[in-house]
Design a protein around this nucleic acid. Structure first.
Length: 201
DNA sequence: GCGACAG
DNA sequence: ATCTTGTCGC
């Protein structure tokens, strides 16, 4: 059973451990992570690219059943097991996660959840805002603070160990199409694997 | 009937 | 997220 009260408390504790600081140095590698679903299974994929030239370095895949169904604002608890398996084999200077970072009611979207738990720099990328968040002039405000930036058709917020300015510039530098390259590739691969794996049954 | 909230 | 075809355009 999924205990909502405990999950909320966990998110609050995690949010207190966010470290917002500039990257020590420019990342040499960036990893995009995403999970696609088909029937009972989820397919997690991590794609590591060099930066800033964006050459493919590695792809890691994991297949398993998600622990809980999707519950808005608790995505981290559903997908963390996938990210945990992926990071074992996918070490990188920076991680881009499909989902929000601190642009979340308790400042604990999946990118923050993951970034704090594994003490790695993360950026959250999401195509839609969570209920209650509004964008004004491409800025998402939360208590008079710019908590996320809209860029093209998605939103950028920090997860952990980075600043929004750094995150924005890096995302800008690695977005050629509708999503940042590491994430776009992870998304495409996970979707294809989910489809293909299911066809062989 | 009301609300409709990442993936 | 997933269910789903063709079609327009570069």
């Amino acid at each position: 059973m999924f205990d909502i009260e405990k999950a909320i408390n966990a998110q609050i504790l995690i949010s207190r451990k966010i470290i917002k600081k500039k990257l020590e140095k420019e990342p040499k590698t960036i990893c995009g992570m995403d999970v696609s679903y088909k029937n009972d299974f989820g397919y997690g994929v991590a794609v590591i690219l060099s930066y800033p030239d964006l050459k493919l370095i590695d792809v890691v895949i994991t297949k398993k059943k998600p622990p809980i169904p999707y519950i808005p604002t608790f995505l981290g608890f559903r997908e963390m097991p996938f990210l945990f398996e992926l990071i074992k084999k996918a070490k990188s200077d920076l991680y881009i996660i499909n989902g929000h970072g601190i642009c979340h009611p308790r400042k604990c979207g999946i990118a923050t959840h993951f970034g704090v738990c594994f003490n790695v720099p993360t950026i959250g990328i999401a195509k839609k805002l969570i209920k209650g968040f509004k964008v004004i002039n491409d800025n998402v405000l939360f208590n008079n603070e710019i908590i996320a930036k809209k860029y093209k058709n998605f939103y950028i917020s920090i997860g952990n160990l980075i600043t929004l300015e750094d995150a924005y510039n890096i995302i800008k530098n690695c977005t050629k199409y509708s999503l940042p390259e590491p994430l776009r590739l992870a998304h495409n691969i996970s979707k294809n694997i989910a489809k293909r794996d299911n066809e062989n049954e």
